[in-house]
Amino acid sequence: MSTCAAQSTNKVRLAVACCVNMCGAVHCSDIALVALHTKVPPIDHERVGKICEIPTVISSCPTRAISPDPAKKSVKINEEKCMYCGNCFTVCPAIDIHNPESDGVAIVVGGKIGSLRSAPKFSKLAIPFFYNEPPRWPKIIAAVKNILEVYAKNARKHERVGEWIDRIGWEKFFKLTGIEFTFQHIDDFTFMRETMRTTPAFKW
């Protein structure tokens, strides 16, 4: 990717996080990969009773999807609310969220840390899911290369990826990169209000 980087108009911080904890400042990188789960974790009820503090497990869930299951002396998960963050697994290993078939990788773009020109930004979702393809993840590499090349070709000098996208608009970003816009791109976690477009002025 060195040739692309040499052509880019500003630095591109490329970061990789192996889970949604996103250690370091992966969540504020120009282009970042984050590994994620996509299925509700199964509960080993027998082990939950033995090794987990049930109130802690319930309070660990950011979407309040976990409630007590007194009959089993365990917990249950509301499948409509679970967003597979794995925080319950962190406090209770009996809720094993690993799933080789459905775990994968998302690409987020446009984050920055410095306050130069514009305020620091979070990286936002560009591609929601790739299957895990070790050892070389060719589809992910191709997708990153595409984003990098489109950025290098279209951005103005000194513009970071996020600044370029803010200038042209996200609809243009998806058009230029050819990335499909899906339901996954619309925030339905806690931050929907601030992400909705509240003007009919956008680009075709």
């Binding site: 996103m22 963050c85 620091p120 979070f122 931050f191």
Partner: peptide
């Protein structure tokens, strides 16, 4: 903070 638990913050 990073995303865990209720989303990242600057």
């Amino acid at each position: 903070k990073a995303p865990i638990v209720v989303g990242s913050l600057l």
